[in-house]
Design a binder for these strands. Sequence first.
DNA 1: GTAGAGGTTGACGCTACGTCAAGGTCAAGG
DNA 2: CCTTGACCTTGACGTAGCGTCAACCTCTAC
Lengths: 252, 252
Amino acid sequence: MDWSIQEIAKIAGTTSRTLRHYDDIGLLKPSRTGHNGYRHYDGPALVQLQRILLLRELGLGLPAIAEVLNRETDTVKALSSHLDWLAQEQDRLTRQIASVRQTIDTMKGDGKYMAQDMFDGFDHTQYKDEVEERWGKDAYAASDSWWRGMSADEKQQWKDRVQKLGSDWISTAESGVSPDSDEAQDLARRHVEWLSGIPGTPTAAPGGDVKGYVTGLGEMYVADPRFAANYGGESGATFVRDALRIYAEQNL
Amino acid sequence: MDWSIQEIAKIAGTTSRTLRHYDDIGLLKPSRTGHNGYRHYDGPALVQLQRILLLRELGLGLPAIAEVLNRETDTVKALSSHLDWLAQEQDRLTRQIASVRQTIDTMKGDGKYMAQDMFDGFDHTQYKDEVEERWGKDAYAASDSWWRGMSADEKQQWKDRVQKLGSDWISTAESGVSPDSDEAQDLARRHVEWLSGIPGTPTAAPGGDVKGYVTGLGEMYVADPRFAANYGGESGATFVRDALRIYAEQNL
DNA sequence: GTAGAGGTTGACGCTACGTCAAGGTCAAGG
DNA sequence: CCTTGACCTTGACGTAGCGTCAACCTCTAC
């Protein structure tokens, strides 16, 4: 019962490189080392190796296996906590699969998630869950079907308009004028006008709290960096927010 | 629309280190680099970054993301093949979880999988599925309950006997005698005698194909390195097989 | 002038080995 | 004795995606 490194590797169904690695990290030392440096393994070593490989197949890490072999940890305990980890992983995978499916579906059905390209700046339909949470399911459904119903040409026009509005905001903010300046207030007017083009938003009709909606939106631009980014970051968004609030209080 | 590396990192919800990494591997270059080496990012860069992070959350690797961004691969196609991979992973995890559960159960109920320690050499109950496949469920159930019913002392005795038999085989094989020598044939007799002590094995009673069983077992010792290991590897197992075949033909 | 905040480029660390590379050892054969 | 070939050895790099120092600029503010 004395095998060379190749022999025991074949017997146990692994490679000599693996055995050298286990030797390096102290997981499994050869039972004997020849004067020429050759590694030799005996029966007990083979048993150890097989236990290692068994645990490895179950997904345990080498440090965890070492603990088990050194009696520092009960095998059952090690496997149990490993099982917890596996369950978590499975959960994560399940959720990730759902996300990928969802993404594929929406990209196939329409370029909703491609909105980063098409909608560019502000996209109420881009963040489905959040829109629903903030303004209700109806608002989302309305703007969603509205967007789906547009032709590619119309979408492009809309996109251009959004981009123009965004860049105007940024240049205005950077010009140093105050949010209550005529320029800023004119932009605020354009902004509200633009918003009114999106179905599902409150209107001036009875019961529609346009004022609260617009000011709330401004706060969100500042609070959410994804929106803030469209207006030149936090400082730009702050400018937009202030301008919108002033406009809302004076005109809505 | 011009952010420093920290700013855009915060906006996009990642770290500056990540952005530097993406720059290094060419996934996302800064839109501008200052005379001082500082990285600066603009709006389009932010959009790219957000797409990258979205795909990353879905689990795509950076090379795959790069392909998508470079229009080399359709996003839907990339996500679909990624989905396949995810499904495989989930499968693997599910099977692994089952294995771990099984192992924990058997280790709790009795040290069946600990058999590597206790049974040492030959353990028909160690490889449940294979035993069942080769010799039927009855054989497994019989030898299993038999083993469970033994006291620790009896188990130890059995273990010693197995080990003695194994080492005798090895030393005999290494001594250079032929498989039909008296010594080898005596060992074969002991081996068959030993086998007959395990419930579930064929007997000399009518209908029991002891001869076929013994020769088949010998073949398995050679074919399966896990068993071969108990007899000094493939060469040793070959010797055992030959001796057993000769013994079976002459005596069974 | 000097903090202090933020930027830069290395370079190591992590998981578990695969994969060369360069060079000894050993048994068999010319 | 020399060669061949199979097998052994010790490095050391590569892998995926950054985290985490380390050592050293740069710019603003007091």
